[in-house]
Nucleic acid binder design. Structure first.
Lengths: 233, 233
DNA sequence: TTTGAGAATTAGGCTAGCCTAATGCCCTGT
DNA sequence: ACAGGGCATTAGGCTAGCCTAATTCTCAAA
């Protein structure tokens, strides 16, 4: 067993790194990542995914159950978390130190994450004071490969009358992020759920300053909240 | 003429960017860059260069005179200078803002220069106060694509008895750069050329603080100096 | 003026990643 | 129990970049 382990393992290609990240995200709720989900996420054709999955399972980064899907091996998970750490540290650095807008950092980080050295990432993390969350509120894996798993619920699923804290915005679309920031809907803000219209209608929330927002279902599904009155961070 | 120009020109690949940089450096003294020089600089086989030169001349980035060599077209020169700007801004940023050693920044910048956006480079340049020289003293091209051309002479070619200012270290080797820094031989320092041993022997210089250094020919060829008593920068 | 060394190019092959078209598998609904 | 839809996989092809081996060109020296 484990014939796939070679001592000086070759560095991963950009493509491989992207595939691993996709599988990580698609399996974060448990279960398998399917070929077509990966294909859609990476914007490639399904046969390209099949081919890559074969290669990755040969090198021991994923476990492939034909016609069922894939999961990361511990080795694959480690690599994926490293990429996610890079991505989120980069996003944090670009916003904090170089004045980038939170709607712009994703694409920038997406390219840079494949080019930065471990050393550079740790210097950035250090300069930032070892941040635990990126600008969108997503947890940053530690250098050791641990990631916080919070139990968050989408704003669309909160109970009317309850109070929640917006913890994370699960989106990377520039325009949507700009809009949300304008509305003051950014990680850390306290929300009281005033009402929700039926038939997947909008959720109405009150912010800390007493103003209200009407949040459509599409956006409400992206706003991940921690229930309860508790204070943020 | 100029059928090669397409309106939405495709982005250059990493390889192409590297070839253009090589040609730029190899032709900086005028003349043609030869296939084998490019091959050596990029550590590829000569036929790979021939193939790439063919492609690049088809896309109008270089001018290829078969069996003679290549030169950059204005378009190719623009692209090369952009890469060099990126590289040198990155080196400057890494040393100034993230505490990197001047011996380490080259390899890091070499990877990053292909992944950074124009916007990021300009933010970095801005954060640095639009630096004109990188940590090794090399001039940074402007965003508009202009680069300073100074008339420098290697320390090995200076006149015994003259005073010079060390302006630039034309090297990217980690160990050599560390050694030079230890010796205080960094851009900006004033040197008086005390003596030079015959048969390509070492050059002996006195620093501003009165101490002397014995600089072997190999290193002396890398130290680019501005002659005369004039003050630095 | 010829010749041969050395440089450049052409010929032919390989891998990584992608594609489309063809085929195969799985499972649900009748 | 099986037919068919939908997803996955295999088959076969393409490009960018690299390689080695074979060939061609250039130029200087005899």
């Amino acid at each position: 067993m484990n014939a796939a382990i070679r001592s000086p393992q070759p560095p991963l290609t950009r493509s491989v790194e992207d595939y691993l990240k996709s599988v990580f995200h698609l399996t974060s709720q448990g279960g398998f990542a399917t070929t077509s989900d990966i294909a859609e996420m990476l914007e490639v054709a399904p046969p390209s995914v099949s081919g890559m999955m074969k290669r990755l399972s040969e090198t021991g980064l994923i476990e492939h159950v034909p016609y069922r899907g894939v999961q990361l091996t511990p080795q694959g998970r480690r690599a994926a978390l490293q990429m996610i750490r890079r991505h989120r540290i980069l996003e944090s650095y670009l916003t904090s130190k170089l004045g980038f807008d939170w709607g712009d950092v994703h694409v920038e980080a997406e390219r840079l994450e494949h080019a930065v050295s471990e050393k550079l990432i740790e210097r950035m993390a250090d300069a930032l004071g070892e941040p635990r969350y990126d600008p969108h509120g997503a947890p940053i894996p530690t250098a050791a490969g641990e990631i916080e798993e919070a139990e968050l619920v989408t704003l669309a699923a909160t109970e009317v009358g309850s109070s929640v804290v917006l913890r994370e915005v699960g989106d990377e679309n520039r325009e949507r992020l700009h809009y949300l920031a304008e509305q003051g809907l950014i990680p850390g803000v306290h929300l009281t759920v005033i009402d929700r219209q039926p038939f997947n209608g909008p959720t109405i929330v009150r912010l800390g300053d007493g103003t209200t927002r009407v949040v459509g279902q599409e956006l409400a599904l992206l706003l991940l909240c921690r229930p309860g009155e508790a204070d943020g961070e």
